[in-house]
Simulated scan of single mutants.
Amino acid sequence: MKFSCCSEMPAEALETIAGQGGLEGLLAALPDDATIARLRTFHHACADIYRIKILEMLTVQPLCACIIREGLGITKSKLSYHLKILQEAGMITGTAKGTWIVYGLTEYGEFCSSLNAKVAEDPANGDRDE
């Protein structure tokens, strides 16, 4: 079988993806760039211990920043950074209550938290701490 691309790749390697239309077919099956960007944002938001903890705290109930900060034992600037990432990812929202802000999960944040719960419950994931 002759392939139109990848002249440097062994034919045996290319044959493994022949059923997908070769490398071109495999690449065509990838999500578009906008979808990839959304996936990147999701994974980035969930790729930090503090942000996961914030999501878990907000799963229990909406909280003001001072309670979240005290619970995590971090500085205001560090908390602000993590809250901004979660807000930009669409996972949390802040509502002004006088001079302070109460943060809560969005519908998307609830969905993301449920994914985290499924991963946490799966014993097949093992203990993969860094």
Rank of each mutant, 00 (worst) to 15 (best):
residue 107 E to D: 05
residue 3 F to C: 04
residue 130 E to S: 08
residue 110 E to L: 14
residue 43 H to R: 12
residue 50 Y to C: 00
residue 125 N to T: 13
residue 53 K to F: 08
residue 96 A to L: 13
residue 97 K to G: 13
residue 63 L to Y: 04
residue 8 E to A: 15
residue 108 Y to G: 08
residue 53 K to G: 02
residue 73 G to P: 10
residue 49 I to L: 09
residue 73 G to N: 02
residue 79 L to F: 02
residue 75 T to S: 15
residue 121 E to W: 04
residue 32 D to I: 00
residue 116 N to A: 14
residue 22 G to E: 03
residue 58 L to M: 00
residue 83 L to A: 00
residue 32 D to S: 04
residue 24 E to S: 14
residue 61 Q to I: 12
residue 11 A to C: 10
residue 107 E to W: 05
residue 44 H to Y: 12
residue 111 F to Y: 08
residue 54 I to Q: 00
residue 114 S to P: 06
residue 89 A to K: 02
residue 3 F to L: 07
residue 117 A to K: 07
residue 114 S to V: 05
residue 79 L to M: 09
residue 98 G to R: 06
residue 116 N to F: 10
residue 57 M to W: 08
residue 65 A to V: 02
residue 36 I to V: 14
residue 20 Q to W: 14
residue 124 A to T: 03
residue 16 T to G: 14
residue 124 A to H: 00
residue 61 Q to D: 05
residue 58 L to A: 00
residue 50 Y to P: 01
residue 117 A to S: 07
residue 104 G to T: 10
residue 127 D to W: 07
residue 42 F to N: 09
residue 5 C to K: 11
residue 25 G to E: 14
residue 119 V to T: 11
residue 19 G to L: 13
residue 14 L to S: 13
residue 102 V to W: 13
residue 77 S to K: 05
residue 74 I to W: 03
residue 59 T to M: 09
residue 72 L to D: 07
residue 81 Y to M: 12
residue 4 S to N: 15
residue 46 C to M: 03
